[in-house]
Amino acid sequence: MKFTLKVWRQKNAKDTGQFETYNISEVENEMSFLEMMDVLNQQLIKEKKDPVAFDHDCREGICGMCSMVINGHPHGHQKATTTCQLHMRSFKDGDTIVIEPWRAKAFPILRDLAVDRSALDNIIQAGGYVSVNTGSAPEANAVPVPQDMAEKAMDAAECIGCGACVAACKNSSAMLFLSAKVSHLALLPQGQPERKKRVISMMKAHDEAGFGSCTNTGACEAYCPKGISITNIARLNREFLSAALTSEYEL
């Protein structure tokens, strides 16, 4: 297979950046998208040019490190798939492919396709945990958790924190990410003691990080590689409203 690639190149955060065009051949249809990028980089290295910097690690769709907007789609056009699990067999020989980084104010570009997603960590640090010190936990089976609740919590907990929801959103909102964590813990008995405080302080951190608000367009759900449902955002709104009305924590 042969492709024309238009890749965003940007030396560092201060550089303005531009698209560069590369022609690539000898791509096989079993290759993953990142393996195709490896071929491009090997080609550039052989020509003594700078390879394209991009984030990637596990290459099995779970670490959440890979992050490319492919032909305008975060993680590409295939539903519920990370960039590393997208395969070249889903493209047509001869296609032109445009590759960009996540674009959002809260995710400054570091180089080429790699961005800084520390803002997502900041949201978790604001309350995405149960405050339990090591060693102080009660016996695991002491509190039964209804199976359907555990499953629902797991549905939300599957979020890999890649930030595709932010890249997909016209408001660059991270509400899907935030709502997944809030839902995961709100659905479990272990998450109850800090339930109200958590949602208020995580929401605050979300806004402070420069993410936009949710206007329910649903792009996040459509592009989430793990199929996290937008109903989590509905739950987040309920959680937030009820906490804001009934708790003593400051907004």
């Binding site: 945990y129 149960v130 339990v132 090591t134 060693g135 102080s136 936990a137 009660p138 016996e139 695991a140 089976n141 509190v143 039964p144 958790v145 209804p146 199976q147 555990a150 499953e151 919590a153 797991m154 907990a157 995961h184 813990l185 479990l188 272990q190 998450g191």
Partner: peptide
């Protein structure tokens, strides 16, 4: 025990255990 207390959503039986 520790992981359950942190909210790790382990698989459960119908009875919740």
């Amino acid at each position: 025990d520790q992981c359950v207390a942190q909210g790790v959503p382990f698989a459960r039986e119908y009875g919740g255990l």
